[in-house]
């Protein structure tokens, strides 16, 4: 538990002055995931950690970016609250800052939102070593541009995230997992139909020819829905396996692709798959680039494979120009995580 803001700011100032890029890291759990490899001098945020403020009645927690997720979650657990977006802890070393930068969220995302949806405000050191406090600690804040949410998925290329204010939720009173044998196409159809029903659904995945549905909420509602939907009643292990990517599906060295798509997009045959987020996130093993992908879907190389080439799809020229200019507005000297997001960024 330490406040290293001044230290980090000095580092950034020096890096900017020397135009010497840094690779921001804390738990170092994701340097080989999500983005491209970043070959630069590490800037360690891991020691800048600790919960700064927590108001259970306000459903708001503030913590330094280097705070490991388990530390945060145990503070919340004392008041029976949780991080609604179920981030992967990757052995307990994953930090809050890295989670936001990578925008990693677990199985509940379509229903309870992502870390991007939960973030209320951030403190950030920009490329000119200025400490910026944007957003706030309250549920709604529309003053100024939404620089906080912009950090989600930016992979640290816009600045060093030093502090985060998050919305949290009460822990669900009860949960129940249901399982059904079916094909991927049947599962997609079922997931979409179930998601249209006003039921306490908070997870829907398909792996190894089984559809899993998770109910979570008021005990009475979970019980009643489970009795109506039938299926085999299981414990909740599958969801933590998905969340931590510890399910056997994720084992091995084959490239792991992530397809982000409309939940009702048809199943594309050809490679081994695991479907999560009620159909909106599909994990693919092996060579996925050659597959015939649904319209409007995005494929990215999540883990493995060649991480020195582009790992995510090309942007149209207008977007690319806007993104480059935006990057420059935060980081004119290009010192933060060069190449991590795209080779040209």
């Amino acid at each position: 538990m330490a406040d290293l803001l001044a230290h980090l700011q000095a580092h950034v100032r020096e890096a900017a002055a020397n135009a010497s890029p840094v690779a921001i890291r804390a738990g170092n759990t994701k340097s080989h995931l999500v983005g491209r490899y970043c070959h630069a001098r590490p800037l360690d945020v891991g020691d800048h950690r600790g919960v700064i403020d927590y108001q259970p009645d306000e459903l708001v927690i503030s913590a330094r970016a280097g705070t490991p997720l388990p530390e945060l979650e145990s503070v919340l657990a004392e008041h029976n609250q949780v991080l609604p977006f179920e981030p992967p802890r990757y052995g307990g070393r994953a930090t809050l800052g890295g989670t936001l930068a990578c925008n990693l969220s677990g199985p509940a995302r379509p229903w309870l939102g992502s870390v991007r949806d939960a973030v209320l405000g951030v403190q950030l050191i920009n490329g000119e070593a200025q400490v910026l406090n944007v957003g706030g600690k309250v549920m709604k804040n529309v003053a100024g541009y939404d620089v906080s949410r912009l950090q989600a998925g930016a992979l640290g290329t816009l600045g060093v995230i030093t502090q985060i204010h998050l919305k949290v939720l009460p822990r669900a009173q009860a949960t129940q997992t249901l399982a059904y044998e079916m094909t991927a196409s049947q599962a997609l159809e079922t997931m979409c139909s179930r998601a249209r029903e006003p039921r306490p659904l908070t997870g829907a995945c398909w792996v190894n020819n089984r559809l899993f549905l998770r109910l979570a909420g008021a005990a009475s509602a979970v019980r009643h829905t489970a009795s109506q939907w039938g299926g085999e009643q299981l414990d909740d292990e599958i969801w933590s396996q998905l969340r931590e990517m510890s399910h056997p599906f994720f084992a091995g060295k084959a490239p792991l692709w992530r397809l982000s798509t409309a939940p009702n997009a048809p199943h594309c045959e050809g490679v081994e798959q695991c479907i999560d987020w009620g159909g909106a996130q599909r994990w693919l093993r092996g060579e996925a680039r050659s597959l015939d992908l649904p319209r409007g879907a995005h494929l990215s190389l999540f883990a493995g494979g060649d991480r020195d080439t582009e790992v995510r799809g090309a942007l149209d020229p207008v977007q690319q120009r806007l993104q480059q200019r935006l990057k420059k507005s935060f980081d004119p000297a290009g010192i933060f995580n060069p190449g991590r997001l795209y080779s040209w960024m």
């Binding site: 995302r109 541009y145 620089v147 816009l158 409007g296």
Partner: peptide, 17 residues
């Protein structure tokens, strides 16, 4: 995009508001 995430920065979030 039609999925929950898009490549690159979340410009939609930035433009919102």
């Amino acid at each position: 995009s039609s999925g929950l995430d898009s490549p690159g920065y979340d410009l939609m979030a930035l433009v919102t508001g």
